[in-house]
């Protein structure tokens, strides 16, 4: 699980070194079938760069939006995404799983 998430940290650190503002999103809990396990990371930069993933692509957009807020405010957030199958076309997990994501600024 930590096998590839650490490379995201290195990428994020690289962006910071280039003077970018960066936020990290980490899957902290999952229920049911969710594509990425706890510990999976997505790095987001203020300029819109993305590295890694917290889902199969379904919630990355919403997480990136929240990350921009966290970069501006400095306040971490816990985001919950959970949808029933019929709601799957909204922002959420198409597979019907639930996932909790922690978003923090690299400061």
């Amino acid at each position: 699980m930590s096998d590839t998430s650490e490379d995201i940290l290195a990428t994020a650190a690289g962006w910071v070194a280039q003077g970018e503002t960066v936020a990290l999103a980490t899957v902290v809990q999952t229920w049911g079938s969710s594509p990425r396990p706890a510990g999976s990371r997505l790095a987001i930069s203020a300029s819109g760069r993305l590295a890694g993933s917290v889902s199969g692509g379904c919630i990355e957009g919403a997480v990136a939006d929240a990350a921009q807020q966290t970069m501006a405010s400095g306040t971490p957030q816990v985001l919950s995404f959970g949808v029933s199958d019929e709601m799957a076309w909204e922002v959420g997990l198409a597979c019907g799983g639930k996932v909790k994501v922690f978003v923090e600024k690299l400061a």
Partner: peptide, 23 residues
């Protein structure tokens, strides 16, 4: 276990994220 843990302690949720050396 190389698996993340969630813990409740003193009324707060904590996330414990292992970083093992590479396989």
């Amino acid at each position: 276990d190389d698996a993340a843990q969630n813990v409740e302690w003193e009324g707060a949720a904590w996330f414990v994220h292992p970083h093992n050396p590479p396989l």
